[in-house]
């Protein structure tokens, strides 16, 4: 048997062990990225082979927690893909404005940068009073960082530029105060967002949602899991509700493709029609 075939077996066994022991189900994840993260974690922990990780992870919960932390940290930024935020402002918020109450779900918020961006957008459009914003992730470590709302001040310039391109009508500096090399998001914004643990792979629908924002999460899943999650989103949305995906993600090949109308092809904004 060739080396790569052996490694594939090791990865499958490790993911199965994690699922059975802790209930975290990574079995539907696209393998190439997760394998890379496993290997990186191994290097950091001085573990020689993937199969050697299995007994370690099964018996050492703290090691497992460290690993999950590594598995699911994605890197994002404030107003990543400004054109998409501009499109939301121009084409989606005017429709949401007609609702007396707006429920927004940011699924897979990681460390929260985009949740704050979205909240700034909602606030500037005058919808903050009637909007409830849920930002969820299955990674408690990422969620705790998101809740503190403290980011690296070195990124402020880039974020500010993104904010302007996203059509921001104030100054990005009004939304944080800086201390040493940290950027701390305003309490007013923080209070507006409810951060909560939710796992897209195993947890249930978020009912009666008007806007679901889930960007660069589906790319980590295989096709079957992508399909399952898109169905979950479909069920969670009100009729006429909006779904916003990452710019390189799509509804193509999913079972719900026909049940959405494309609002903005380039920025991947869809509306539930059926």
């Amino acid at each position: 048997m060739k080396l790569h075939e052996i490694e594939n077996i090791e990865v499958e066994l490790l993911l199965e062990a994690i699922f059975q022991r802790y209930g975290y189900d990574f079995r539907g994840y696209a393998r190439a990225s997760i394998r890379r993260r496993i290997k990186q974690f191994m290097e950091g922990s001085k573990i020689a082979t993937i199969s050697e990780m299995i007994p370690r992870v099964i018996h050492d919960e703290s090691l497992f927690n460290e690993m999950v932390r590594e598995f699911s940290i994605t890197v994002t930024e404030m107003f990543r893909d400004p054109a998409m935020f501009l499109a939301l402002r121009e084409n989606v918020l005017p429709v949401l404005k007609s609702y007396p109450y707006i429920k927004i779900w940011h699924a897979g918020c990681a460390t929260g940068e985009e949740a704050y961006s979205l909240t700034i957008l909602i606030k500037e459009y005058g919808l903050a009073e009637r909007a409830t914003i849920f930002a969820t992730d299955f990674n408690d470590h990422a969620l705790s960082l998101a809740k503190t709302g403290i980011y690296d001040l070195n990124n402020a310039k880039q974020y500010s530029l993104n904010y302007q391109k996203a059509g921001g009508n104030g100054s990005f500096a009004d939304y944080y105060h800086s201390r040493y090399d940290a950027m701390m998001m305003n309490n007013e914004l923080k209070k507006k967002i409810t951060f909560a643990n939710h796992n897209l792979v195993v947890d249930q629908v978020f009912s009666e949602t008007h806007l679901i924002f889930c960007r660069n999460v589906l790319i980590y899943f295989n096709r079957e899991l992508q399909d399952r999650v898109l169905q979950l989103f479909h069920e969670s949305l009100v009729h006429g509700g909006f779904l916003c995906l990452g710019t390189k993600e799509s509804l193509m090949f999913s079972r719900v493709e026909d049940r959405f109308k494309t609002i903005d092809k380039k920025n991947k904004i869809f509306q539930k029609i059926d």
């Binding site: 490694e7 393998r31 990225s33 394998r35 994605t74 890197v75 790319i219």
Partner: peptide, 30 residues
């Protein structure tokens, strides 16, 4: 991926780069 499809990721930059040549090469090697 092993089934000869592509996957994308927004994981950290590798050697200051995203896309990274290492990331592509390692996955393609497998």
């Amino acid at each position: 991926e092993s089934d000869l499809t592509f996957s994308l990721s927004i994981d950290r930059k590798v050697k200051y780069s995203r896309p990274s040549i290492d990331v592509l090469f390692e996955s393609a090697a497998m």
